Amino acid sequence: MYRDLLGQIPADAYVREEVLTAEIAHVFRPSWLCVGFVEDLKNHQDFITAQIGPHSIVVQNFNGDLRAFRNVCSHRFARIQTESAGNRPLQCPYHGWTYNGEGKPVGVPLNKPCFNLTEADQAELALQAYALEVVGHFVFVRMTSEGPDLQTFLGDYHDELEHLSAVCTDRFERVSYEWEANWKLGMDNAAEGYHVPLVHAESFGLILSLQLEISSVPDHSRYTGKLKERSLKWWRNVHKNLKITPSDRYPEYGNFLIFPNIVITFSGGAFLTFQTFDPIAPERLRINSASWLATNRGGQTRDLVVGELKTFSAQVRDEDAQICGITQAGMRDVPDNRAPLLGQMEGRIAHFQKAWAKRMGDWSASGETP
C-alpha cells in the first residue's frame, strides 16, 4: 500500500512557527553547524557571522585564535558584528563595549563613573561562548555546551571534508540568497535526483545520469553517480588545460547531505559547492553557498571555466528556487496533513526525515512540542 511509503514529517511541519521553534532547540542547537570558511578568518580581528533562526553567531580571530560567541552585547543587547564578514574589533557599535578572546567586556567606556565594573563583574558579563572546531575549509560551531566532538558527529564525513578541501583550493564564489520555502523542503529537494529530468531539463539533466548509488550513515547520507559523456569530455579538457589533478575518490559526481542543513556537491573530480540551508522563518530560508575549483595553474582559461561554472550554478539555483516555492505553497493546503510519499529514488529524504524525527523526540502533528 502507498501508506507504507509515507515519510515521517507531516505537511504542516513545513509551515508552523511552533515547529521551527522546536527545531531550533532540538535539531540545530545540539548539532555542529557550519557557520563559514577559514578563508575569511585568516587575519587578526577578521570575523564572520551566521544567523540560525533567532540566534546570531559571531566567530572572531584573536591573534590567530578563533572563538565563537553569541553575537549579542551584554550591555543593552545590540548585535556586535552587523555584517556577514569583515575585519574590526569585537566592539558593540552602540556604546563601544569591547570584548576579548574570552568574551569579557574589557573595554567599557566611562566604566568608573557609569558602572564601576570589577573583574568579577566582567567575568559574569562575558558573552556566551560556543564550541568551535575546524575541518578543511569549514568552520563548525555547536551552541550547546555538551555533545560529541566534531569528528564523532561527522563520522566518516570528517575525512571526506578534509579530502574535498585538499583537492579544491581555489575558491571563486561565495553567495547568499533566500527562498520562499521551509529549510527542510530545501534539504528534501537536494536529497533526490527524481526531479532532475523535468526541473533541470536544460541544466543538470544534460550532464547527470540518474544511475545513482546511495549510501548512508546515522544522520548523514550521500549518493554518487556518473556524468554523461558530454560532461565528461568537458571536464577532461578542463583537467588538461588547467593542469588539474582530479579527486580519485569522486572522479565524476558526488552529493552529500550532512545533518541537519549541509548540502555538498562535487563534480568532475574538481568542482566543489558547499551550501547551508539556514532557517529564517517557517516558510523562508537563506542558503549560504561557496564554490571551489581544484588546484590549477590559473590564467585566462581558469577565468573562462569559472565563468561557465557560475552561470550553470545560477541556473540550477533558480530552477530549484522556483519549484521549492511552488511546493511550499502546496504544503499550506494539504487537507489530511499527511507526510509526503517517498519512492525508491527518494530514499535519502526518508533517511533525513528519520534523523529529524529522532531529534524532535516527542513532537507530534497535534501541536505538542518537546
Rank of each mutant, 00 (worst) to 15 (best):
R3F: 00
L6V: 13
P10Q: 00
D12M: 09
R16C: 10
V27P: 12
C34T: 12
V38I: 15
E39R: 13
F47S: 07
I48H: 05
A50Q: 14
I52G: 06
H55I: 15
I57S: 03
I57D: 05
N61S: 11
N61I: 06
F62N: 00
F69D: 06
R70P: 06
V72R: 11
H75L: 06
F77D: 09
I80M: 06
Q81W: 05
P89D: 07
L90T: 06
P93G: 02
T98W: 06
N100F: 01
G101C: 09
K104F: 07
K104A: 14
V108C: 04
P109Y: 05
A120M: 08
Q122M: 10
Y130V: 01
E133D: 13
V134G: 01
G136Q: 02
T144M: 07
C168I: 00
E173M: 11
W183M: 00
G186L: 01
M187E: 05
D188H: 02
A191P: 04
Y194F: 02
S203K: 09
F204E: 07
G205S: 00
I207E: 04
L210G: 04
L212N: 02
I214N: 11
D219S: 09
H220F: 01
S221R: 08
K228W: 07
R230K: 11
V238Y: 02
N241L: 13
K243R: 14
K243Q: 12
S247E: 03
S247C: 02
D248C: 01
Y250R: 09
Y253N: 09
L257M: 13
N261R: 05
T265P: 10
F271S: 04
T276R: 04
D278N: 14
P279K: 02
E283H: 15
L285D: 08
L285K: 11
N288S: 10
A290V: 11
S291L: 07
Q300D: 13
D303Y: 07
L304E: 14
V306H: 04
E308A: 12
K310A: 01
V316S: 08
Q322K: 15
A329K: 15
M331Q: 11
A339C: 13
E346R: 04
R348W: 03
I349T: 04
K354Y: 08
K358G: 00
M360K: 12
M360L: 14
S366Q: 14
P370R: 10
